[in-house]
Write a protein that binds this DNA or RNA. Structure first.
Lengths: 211, 211
DNA sequence: CTGTAACAGTAACAAAAGTTACGGATGCTA
DNA sequence: TAGCATCCGTAACTTTTGTTACTGTTACAG
């Protein structure tokens, strides 16, 4: 039994299922920046995140992007799942935000386990629930909030996932994730610095007084 | 066996499940405008839509709204489901768009059937998938499109669900659904009329040349 | 028939966000 | 160390969206 499986999923699944996961899952290591899922791609396996952070994005026809949410260890991507079961193509793009380890589970097994293990069913439904909530939070952001609030939220979120008040990111990166322009982000960041909420440095932003 | 159940769900479920639905489900008739689900409400039953159209919305703290999607007969609300299973409160608001009939299924049964019937499981997963796709479409709208495009999309969608190129709606109604102001909608509608895409009348909009 | 409320058109202005352009700072490498 | 690419700050401007205010029209109730 792989130690990582037990550590991240041991409290969720019964031993028999853990054993199946261990026997069938294939570990995949990826580097920061690697593309895990392309928009439009057919998927034959769903990834369980063992370690690292994965960024999930929505793309429009022109290749413009909007970040939806991050995934952490112990989580899986409901989108993938949704596409797997429907045997349709992926509606999202996923990129490794940090070096990460994934456990790949073939679709057939994933479906088989839905009938066989209640704990698996609960896990999958929980995942759906969580992702739906994240997507709704994204909607709240873009529908009800202005760019300055969205930016603050983004910084807080990033800081949380990296567990560091110093965020290593360029203004252009943020602009891509929030689907706006670099100039707008620079402008708003400067305003935040002037009110002493953050400290700006080349390639990094230090959160000072965020809530 | 209720005729409506067989008509809308007969092709999806095996006879045994249909019988259970018939025995356990409670029919509920609601009028246009009735609130079916409040944001923050605890839910103990999930609704299967038998007839009519239901509008699903997202609310922010200040009571501002954004329309997410419509539900039709044969569909159910994944959000409700998500909240039921997680035993958390509703994150959305649902209002009857037209007079509608619902079949209410208690949560316990819904969960029991997940293990018992593959067709039910598939139905629930399909629902999730569909709602997720709708929510993503909403994100596309507000993230990548300008208000004039969103408005057109809204009109097309409404026309589709009512199966009528004449839409009975006030500018203020549209403004609420798209979370903007009446003046903005009036302005854009006027522009659409000037380019002969639509014809405006008091309380109604006739689609002329959409796509 | 009249008063009232809801609805729609429009102007004028304000705020937010997007765009273009340029210049300086930084750091890498040839 | 000279050249080059990336990053960031900022100004000036445009476009889009939001806001306020006022008007005329329509429908309906009394």
């Amino acid at each position: 039994m792989l130690e990582e499986i037990k550590k991240n999923y041991g409290h969720l699944f019964e031993d028999e299922l853990l054993q199946e996961i261990n026997d069938i899952g294939v570990i995949k290591h990826v580097n920061s920046g690697d593309e895990l899922i392309r928009t439009g791609q057919y998927l034959s396996a769903m990834p369980l995140l063992i370690d690292g952070v994965v960024k999930v994005m929505r793309e429009d026809e022109d290749g413009f992007e909007l970040m939806l949410y991050f995934l952490e260890k112990g989580e899986t991507c409901a989108m993938t799942l949704s596409c797997c079961t429907g045997s349709s193509v992926s509606e999202i793009r996923a990129v490794a935000e940090t070096d990460s380890s994934l456990l790949m589970i073939p679709v057939e097994k994933m479906e088989e386990w839905l009938g066989k293990y209640k704990s698996w069913r609960n896990f999958i439904f929980d995942s759906y629930h969580q992702r739906l909530m994240e997507v709704l939070a994204t909607i709240d952001s873009i529908a009800f909030k202005k760019m300055d609030e969205r930016l603050l939220e983004y910084l807080k979120n990033k800081s949380k996932y990296y567990n560091d008040s110093e965020i290593k990111v360029t203004h252009q990166d943020i602009a891509f994730d929030l689907h706006t322009s670099r100039v707008v982000i620079s402008r708003l960041l400067k305003r935040l610095e002037k009110t002493n909420r953050i400290k700006l440095n080349r390639n990094s932003i230090k959160l000072i007084d965020i809530d």
